[in-house]
Design a protein around this nucleic acid. Structure first.
Lengths: 187, 187
DNA sequence: TGTGTATAATAACAGGTGTTATATAACAAC
DNA sequence: GTTGTTATATAACACCTGTTATTATACACA
């Protein structure tokens, strides 16, 4: 009875994600997206009640993209798992600047922060370095801050690093903090 | 002959800066600003040819605000100068989140980066720690990244730190990196 | 006390948004 | 084929921008 649907939710979200990747989240709007899809804006609003709903779906898709980076880099095994996680975060920031800004440089006021993930990492660190969990937490927090610092600089073109530079910066910081927390009693 | 000007450039920029502080740069527009000034939008456009010109003036004012933070914290002498500079950057990020985002979390593509300031700091570090300038550069880069990481997290409400926590995080990282670069030959 | 002029207030224009009303057309069932 | 349903295209609405014409007005000077 009806003509077949031109667009699925997935098609729309994919096009929206591509748009955000190329031009940034600020440029995502109904007409721009419709033009890219070669349709009017109607199909978009038949799949999503509001643009806000679509943007939420795009945010999820962006996060999936980030998880794919994590998966790939950890499986690749170029670095030990803990370092690979940080290197992957940084690679994502450099290669998908707009998605990184959307996911990790947004204001998070009134957003619930779940420390469980960071705590898993801290546990991993405690075992890896054979140090107590409270030290591991502080160590991981510092490393996380450092990695986030590099990533945000890359995402905003504040500065450019080669992968080798990043790798050695992280290694130096890792080793330095390790020394610091290993000998903490002495200071 | 004419009625006296209601608004000077300074008055307008101050109101615009206050608006940006409270609501963020995205909310700065002619009508909102005029409402805050208790006038129509005309006086704004008699002082500034375009909103873009006004926004440039607001950016300068925001930077002045940042410099005032630096000046105050360095003169206060609560920390040694090098650390004070980083602590001040972080305090600014926490207390003036919107201005920090505007100044230091913007995309900088095609903006000339002047490494002179960072190099001055590296020289300071080289003298302070009595290490060669190339090591001092790497050390300072790492510290800068770390400080920037903390600051961006605070500005986006990614996480909250007390000043004491920040201070000890920075000290630990400073000491750790110091150890690292002092004994670099051995690794 | 008038008067001219710079200034501001009002209102309008030209885009650009999200969203929706209306009209058109495709397609499956008869 | 005809028909009914429904997705799409078209066009419009309402709102928000920057910006500008037009009108009104305050005030130093004559």
């Amino acid at each position: 009875m009806p003509p077949k649907k031109k667009l699925t939710r997935e098609t729309i979200v994919n096009a929206a994600l591509a748009l955000v990747k190329e031009r940034g989240a600020d440029y995502l709007n109904a007409r721009e997206l419709a033009g890219r899809l070669g349709t009017s804006t109607q199909p978009i609003f038949s799949q999503f009640a509001t643009m806000q709903e679509l943007k939420a779906a795009v945010l999820d898709a962006a996060y999936e993209c980030y998880l794919a980076y994590q998966k790939e880099d950890i499986e690749k095994g170029n670095y030990p798992p803990y370092k690979a996680s940080g290197m992957s975060y940084i690679r994502f920031a450099g290669e998908e600047k707009e998605l990184f800004k959307l996911l990790f440089m947004r204001s998070r006021r009134n957003e619930t922060y779940s420390p469980s993930e960071a705590d898993d990492m801290a546990t991993m660190v405690a075992e890896m370095m054979a140090i107590p969990l409270d030290k591991a937490r502080r160590f991981h927090l510092s490393m996380w801050i450092f990695v986030h610092g590099v990533a945000t600089m890359l995402a905003t073109d504040y500065i450019t690093f080669s992968e080798e530079t990043v790798s050695s910066l992280i290694t130096d910081t890792f080793q330095g903090l390790k020394r610091q927390y290993d000998t903490e009693e002495l200071t």
